[in-house]
Simulated scan of single mutants.
Amino acid sequence: MSTEALRTSEAAPGAAGEALVVVFAVESGPDGPGRPVAVGGTVIGSARNYADVERLIDRAGLADLVRADPTIVAWRGGDPDRWS
């Protein structure tokens, strides 16, 4: 999956209900800070960097879909450069 595709994809404000994949703001967790990643409204894991987001999307079987349309990933609580 292209990291650049993930970096440039931002759903329109208010579109979180329509986005298939949502990367939320950084939260404290038992393993340290991370950004919860949800698919279809269900949190599937926490990401500490782009590689984690890509891994979670791939594990969910959505890598090809995101490659085809990176706008299905919405970044909430910070842009794709925010990890702390």
Rank of each mutant, 00 (worst) to 15 (best):
A16Y: 08
R59T: 14
R7D: 10
I44M: 02
P80S: 08
S84E: 14
T71G: 12
V37D: 00
T71L: 13
A38W: 11
L65I: 14
A68Q: 13
R7G: 01
P80V: 02
A47V: 03
R67L: 13
E54Y: 07
V39D: 03
A19I: 00
V73A: 01
A68P: 01
A68C: 07
D64L: 09
P33T: 09
S9D: 07
V43G: 07
N49H: 10
A47H: 04
D31T: 15
E27V: 13
I72P: 00
G61K: 02
G29A: 04
A25Q: 06
T3L: 11
I72G: 07
D64S: 14
V21K: 00
A38M: 06
P80F: 02
N49Q: 12
E18N: 13
P13G: 04
R76V: 13
G41I: 03
R76F: 06
M1W: 05
V21G: 02
R76C: 12
V37T: 05
E27D: 12
W75G: 00
V37N: 05
R7L: 14
G45A: 09
E10N: 14
T8M: 09
P70A: 12
I44V: 15
R55P: 01
R7T: 10
G14W: 03
A60H: 04
A47K: 00
V39E: 02
E18T: 10
P30Q: 10
A38E: 14
D79E: 11
G17L: 08
S84V: 13
V53S: 00
G14K: 02
A60L: 04
E10I: 09
P70R: 05
S46W: 11
P33S: 13
G61V: 08
D58N: 10
G41L: 09
V22P: 00
G78A: 03
R48W: 09
V21Q: 01
P36F: 00
P33Y: 01
V39F: 03
G77F: 05
G77E: 01
A19E: 03
E4F: 11
T42W: 10
G34C: 01
G17I: 05
E27N: 08
D58A: 14
P36I: 07
W83F: 01
P13N: 10
R35D: 05
P70G: 08
E54N: 09
V26Y: 03
T71R: 12
T42R: 15
V43W: 04
P33V: 15
A5Y: 03
D69R: 09
M1H: 08
S28E: 15
E54L: 10
V26P: 02
A15P: 08
A15T: 15
P80C: 11
T8R: 15
A5V: 05
R59Y: 04
W83T: 03
E27R: 14
V22M: 03
D58K: 11
S9T: 12
W75H: 07
P33M: 12
V73K: 01
V23S: 01
E10A: 14
A68K: 14
P70K: 08
W75T: 01
V37W: 01
D69T: 02
L62I: 07
E27S: 12
R67I: 11
S46Q: 11
G40F: 04
A12R: 07
T3F: 10
